[in-house]
């Protein structure tokens, strides 16, 4: 680990000021950043601890929910309103990492956690994300955990967060504060696809701080869920995951649907094509499968991850079927 200075920010404005220094990084729970510093993948010269900033979870007048960026993952997952009105979010968080890590991890840090691509983690490997232009050792290497959608020849990594998949499905909005003031951004626009610049992972401005995540009032989210498929029963990243909310009309057709996938792309993947294919269709396994096929029509698997294409289709179908049943 490279030596660094450490300061705690008392408010967002101070954080943004300190975060603007060259080589500065925000520190949430540190469960990802500190790991990467130990591997010298990240080498910030100063850390600005933002865990003292807003961590409240507030219900808004319009029925939405505002979650401070410093809120711990455990607190969010266990929050009553989250559990009852946005069960997909609670389940997604609880499907991730371990109890200890979730106790430390913050909302902001979870959003910006970095890929688990093993070549990214190993300074001896070639990685365009770590060293732009160096090449990508994953494309021809171990890529079982890599992307099948939206990847580029420069990078085939996935975004590893579970929580973000639920947020993507639930139309979450990210609140930001930067040198130029505050703004907000739909979560699905926060992360970028790799293109030619996999090192640029988000649309954030330099030193822009995440201050909160907002969940809009979304009545259908009460009937939402998250399903994660992984290599062991717990404490493993998703091979494929699905977050979904479903609203079925009295006549058995799909009135509305939200669907997002994890483990398949460089960003939490909102399955817009599948959603479109489903609206107005009968809520049957056949339509679910057809929608899943539509979403994955452009999937481009690598040597070791072709199974994810079928796995994603099956998981989407099963999750939507579950939401139409009584169990959801």
């Amino acid at each position: 680990m490279t030596p660094f200075s450490f300061a705690r920010a008392d408010d967002a404005a101070a954080a943004v000021r300190m975060g603007g220094a060259p080589g500065a990084k925000y520190l949430g729970g540190g469960t990802n950043l500190v790991d990467l510093m130990r591997e010298t993948v990240e080498q910030p010269t100063s850390l600005v601890d933002v865990t003292g900033l807003g961590d409240a979870i507030e219900e808004r007048a319009d029925g939405g929910l505002l979650i401070g960026a410093a809120a711990r993952n455990t607190a969010v997952a266990g929050h009553r309103t989250v559990r009852t009105r946005y069960p997909a979010l609670s389940r997604a968080i609880l499907a991730g990492a371990s109890g200890q890590i979730r106790n430390m991890a913050t909302m902001g840090g979870n959003l910006l956690q970095r890929t688990r691509c093993t070549y990214f983690y190993d300074a001896a490997a070639r990685c365009n994300k770590r060293v732009p232009g160096a090449g990508c050792d994953a494309v021809e290497g171990f890529n079982r955990i890599h992307a099948i959608l939206g990847a580029s020849p420069a990078c085939v990594a996935t975004h590893p967060s579970d929580m973000c998949v639920a947020l993507a499905a639930l139309d979450a909005v990210v609140h930001l504060q930067g040198g130029a003031g505050t703004r907000s951004l739909p979560l699905v626009d926060l992360h970028r696809l790799p293109g030619g610049r996999p090192d640029m992972e988000t649309t954030l401005e330099p030193s822009e701080l995440i201050t909160a995540v907002e969940l809009p009032a979304l009545p259908m989210a009460a009937r939402s869920t998250y399903r994660k498929v992984r290599d062991r029963a717990s404490y493993a990243f998703a091979l494929v995951s699905v977050a979904a909310a479903l609203d079925v009309a009295a006549d058995g057709t799909v009135r509305d649907v939200r669907l997002a996938l994890g483990g398949v792309a460089h960003k939490p993947w909102r399955a817009a094509m599948a959603e479109q294919a489903l609206r107005g269709q009968p809520a049957t396994e056949a339509s679910f499968r057809a929608a899943a096929e539509a979403e994955l029509a452009d999937a481009a698997p690598l040597a070791h991850n072709a199974f994810k294409v079928e796995l994603a289709k099956r998981t989407i179908t099963a999750v939507l079927a579950e939401l139409t049943g009584d169990r959801a």
Binding site: R116, T118, G141
Partner: peptide, 21 residues
């Protein structure tokens, strides 16, 4: 990795052993 002879998952996050569940 047979190209480099390097072990690519030298961590208990990626080298999976059974967890309680």
């Amino acid at each position: 990795d047979e190209r480099s002879g390097r072990v690519m998952n030298p961590s208990l996050a990626e080298y999976h052993v059974p967890v309680h569940l």
